[in-house]
Write a protein that binds this DNA or RNA. Structure first.
Ligand SMILES: [Mn+2]
Ligand SMILES: [Mn+2]
Ligand SMILES: [Mn+2]
Ligand SMILES: [Mn+2]
Lengths: 219, 219
DNA sequence: ATTTTGTCTTTGACGACTCAAAGAGATTAT
DNA sequence: ATAATCTCTTTGAGTCGTCAAAGACAAAAT
């Protein structure tokens, strides 16, 4: 069994493996995991020797099928736990990421099955991130329609929040731009970099980079 | 913060500290934690230097107030988690000890409070073990009335199971001698070491040492 | 009073994870 | 083409938790 450290490494690699050439730079991992580059090199070599990933020195790292399967299981646990904490324990959706970060390593498959059943087999977590099924081997990516790119004046629904940092989630909470909310871009100004949106009973103003972190879907 | 290893050591010491002279032999800890005696000596010295316990070489170990407080918090988490797994996730009460052994180290106080509230602030776990309150500093011991010592032919209620091993819990499950069950000792024979009990719709036969692991209370 | 036995401690070593600092490779700028 | 910069790797070291094996102590047996 992988240690929780290894599980965190696997997850960090998985969520950064975009597309076919799923190669992740070790520097990005050092950044993401809050350790020094040298630590990443060491860990990555040991994980490679265990068959969890391949390491091209000075190039990056790619999960093996085994590594990807393990990583998917961790992501699944993380997101089901988050959903459980919000849905059943009624916790604040801003807090649950941190809690899930620890619980994802302590919950057995037996317990996870119960949680999944009680929640009615949800397909997305509170942030709108898709919950991998028990045997899926692919991680769905965002389709790219966000408040920064969607057609103006047309109605959309918030689908997914692509930034889990407390400060951003706090903003989302405050404005009500949570997954499920109806929203319409009133005005988008590339010159000033400002996006203005209408919600049901309110409006929200945000910058373009921030708007790009809110995935939406036509309703 | 203590590591989960240190938490397990603290808990093992606490549940073995009986009475005033709460000194626990290091050998008993080695046995309980499944490590070699030398490992215990090493860990115990480091925990002593952190102020969690006092170590009299070749005598034993005693928790400091700080160590006891931490240990109580771990026991509280363990028992609340067990209760939650049975009550809310409807897991088999034979399985939950193992699950709680891991979860007790991963659950934050925030989550624990929610669990406690949802359960309605229970005072005992599925095995009948008392759940320490948030600030209690004493671990209640069994009062000593068991199926091995209670008066015969009088009605009692099962209060607590003092052996958490899977094989014993399996027996308890099979006979229905779970906490809450009504029971009456029909016949106790010191010569053969056999105790015969009546339950609601059945009867159970067990040895004296086993009977001593089932705490009961007059109804 | 010795010896034996059982329990505990010490010592040396190892795997997992980490850092700081120095070194090597590759990319970009001049 | 050379230098500067950026990124990654290597090296040496430290902490934590563990073991095996050897040593010390104390209680019990002779
Ligand atoms: Mn984690
Ligand atoms: Mn999430
Ligand atoms: Mn534990
Ligand atoms: Mn219990």
């Amino acid at each position: 069994m992988p240690t929780s450290t290894v599980e965190n490494y696997l997850k960090a690699i998985l969520v950064r493996s975009t597309g076919d050439e799923a190669v992740v730079a070790t520097g990005a991992l050092a950044e993401a995991l809050g350790v020094t580059p040298g630590t990443i090199t060491t860990m990555v070599k040991s994980m490679a020797s265990r068959g969890l990933l391949e390491h091209q020195p000075r190039e990056g790292v790619r999960l093996t099928p085994e590594g990807r399967t393990l990583a998917m299981a961790v992501v699944r646990k993380h997101r089901l736990v988050e959903t459980f904490l919000v849905q059943v324990l009624h916790m604040d959706w801003k807090e649950v990421h941190e809690e899930a970060e620890a619980l994802e390593h302590a919950i057995s498959d037996r317990v996870l099955l119960r949680i999944d059943a009680i929640l009615g087999y949800p397909v997305a977590d509170p942030h709108g991130d898709p919950i991998p099924s028990r045997k899926s081997h692919l991680l769905e990516r965002g389709k790219g329609v966000t408040l920064a790119t969607c057609e103006a004046l047309k109605p959309f629904r918030v689908e997914r929040i692509l930034d889990q940092s407390p400060v951003f989630l706090e903003f989302i909470q405050r404005t009500g731009l949570k997954p499920g909310a109806r929203v319409r871009v009133r005005d988008r100004d590339p010159a000033s970099g400002v996006v203005r949106c209408d919600l049901k009973d309110s409006e929200a103003t945000l910058g373009l980079p921030e708007a790009a972190k809110i995935e939406v879907k036509a309703v």
